[in-house]
């Protein structure tokens, strides 16, 4: 018996007992997961960032009240009830972590990727971000760039607004959204 077989049996046991009790439906689990697989993900955050790049008024609102600004685009809800957007510039670089678990702005970025949830990321990003960014994410930052690490330890859910890449001045919003990556909105990449 492999570990995988045991894990599969443990999960089925819980689901089948909960369905038998009528607490959940036989259809419930798949329906919920499909929402996160098909509807919610970093494409939503990319829309927010692209809007901020083309609309200075929106950017100002986003940086002062991200929950309300994302709400203008119909983005918000579960695990993003209180959103905070922080801007990355030539002189300040923000990066987001959750050292205690895996808090992440779900309505903006979807559910977190494995590396974000990993013990290595949680342990090291707060203590040695310059080294982790350079060595593990290929993002060497100049000594003159101030690093701010945001540990999502309470209710605020953070994402970063990366700098708009050079040479995109005549791009429209939709094309801009296409270059915004999940990593750039967590602060482990620049564009």
């Amino acid at each position: 018996m492999s570990d995988e077989a045991e894990l599969r049996a443990r999960v089925k046991a819980l689901e089948s007992l909960l369905v038998e009790r009528g607490l959940i439906g036989a259809d419930t689990v798949d329906q919920i997961v499909e929402v996160y697989e098909s509807e919610i993900g970093p494409l939503l955050g990319a829309k927010v960032v692209a809007r901020a790049w083309v609309d200075p008024g929106f950017k100002e609102r986003l940086l002062s009240d991200a929950t309300a600004a994302c709400g203008e685009l119909g983005i918000g809800g579960l695990q993003g009830e209180q959103l905070v957007a922080v801007e990355n510039t030539d002189s300040v670089h923000n990066v987001v972590v959750c050292t205690l678990c895996s808090c992440y702005p779900w309505p903006v970025l979807g559910i977190p990727p494995n590396w974000y949830k990993s013990p290595e990321y949680r342990a090291r990003m707060v203590a040695e971000p310059r080294r982790v960014l350079a060595e593990d994410f290929g993002l060497p930052l100049g000594e003159d760039v101030e690093i701010r690490v945001q540990d999502s330890s309470a209710e605020m859910r953070y994402f970063t607004v990366p700098q708009r890449p050079a040479g995109t001045e005549d791009w429209d919003e939709e094309r801009l959204a296409g270059v915004v990556t999940r990593e750039s909105m967590v602060g482990v990449a620049v564009l």
Binding site: L100, N114, W115, S118, P119, A123, E135, D136, T181, R182
Partner: peptide, 19 residues
């Protein structure tokens, strides 16, 4: 409670990891 805990190696970053 892992913040700053010693003994951890490189972050295994893969942008294409499935959820």
């Amino acid at each position: 409670d892992l913040g700053g805990a010693p003994g951890f190696g490189p972050v295994r970053f893969d942008p294409d990891d499935p959820l």
